[in-house]
Design a protein around this nucleic acid. Sequence first.
DNA 1: CCTTGAAGCTATAGTTGCTAGAGACATTAG
DNA 2: CTAATGTCTCTAGCAACTATAGCTTCAAGG
Lengths: 146, 146
Amino acid sequence: MLTIGKLGEAAGVKVPTIRYYEQIGLLPEAERSAGNQRLYGRKARERLAFIRHARDLGFTLEAIRDLLSLSDRPDQSCAAADAIAKAQLAEVESRLARLTALKAELERMVVQCAGGSIADCRVIEVLSDHSLCATDHRHPESEVPS
Amino acid sequence: MLTIGKLGEAAGVKVPTIRYYEQIGLLPEAERSAGNQRLYGRKARERLAFIRHARDLGFTLEAIRDLLSLSDRPDQSCAAADAIAKAQLAEVESRLARLTALKAELERMVVQCAGGSIADCRVIEVLSDHSLCATDHRHPESEVPS
DNA sequence: CCTTGAAGCTATAGTTGCTAGAGACATTAG
DNA sequence: CTAATGTCTCTAGCAACTATAGCTTCAAGG
């Protein structure tokens, strides 16, 4: 049995994050020692590793909640899990596309900056005037996931 | 002079967002009409367009605050603005790299899912066991901007 | 056995960048 | 003139944590 600190170290998750996951019901309430400290066994370790890995892959906690409840029913169809993963893939692809466009525009901005004074700064200028953007494209919705 | 609604429409920014920008000091306090409604002139329009454009390019509000205060002093060196833009570019590039890796992994997960039952689901399996990832790479820090 | 320092506990509040709601007043179209 | 928007302020909520305060428990050294 591991204490919360050891578990966090093992899984690469910070201690308050583990407590947070318990609080929102993503992890079950941990067993407690005589002195009221949380103790974790193999199952909790595996569940946390699952969560961590899915977070690394960009799944939201909501999606992870769904995936976890699916993995608790191994006899059912895999379609739902597949759908969640596909949605996540689509999301990642769309973010990639947006970021790629942003990168191009930022690069142009930075390259054109001759290092003079603010008055001639391309960076400020481009930001001030959208029409100075390379093409007449409208900007992507936003680079930050909604 | 525009009302807040017209301004928002013109700039592609929602009304509460404009009020929020004013509240956090990104926009100056607006003039008011006799009936206490906000009124905006050319300068406010330009400033909001600047903010909107910078947000579209992924700059944080903090970075935008800096860029705005730079653009208010047109005689100074452009180096600071350049540095902010370069930092943003680096951030975007790193996110791109991470997302590209995620995409590859998600694609593998999805492709390998044969559509059987959860017990054989690659999606769940890969999430459960990091060692099933294609290579022995450690995952990127996180795909979500910190 | 006792002390000290690290690690754990709870609870609350802060972060970023908004968004949504309530309830009241202002403006405008018909 | 009335009804429908639009705007006002204020507060609370979202994701996914992170940080703080003030306490208790635990493990190791003297």
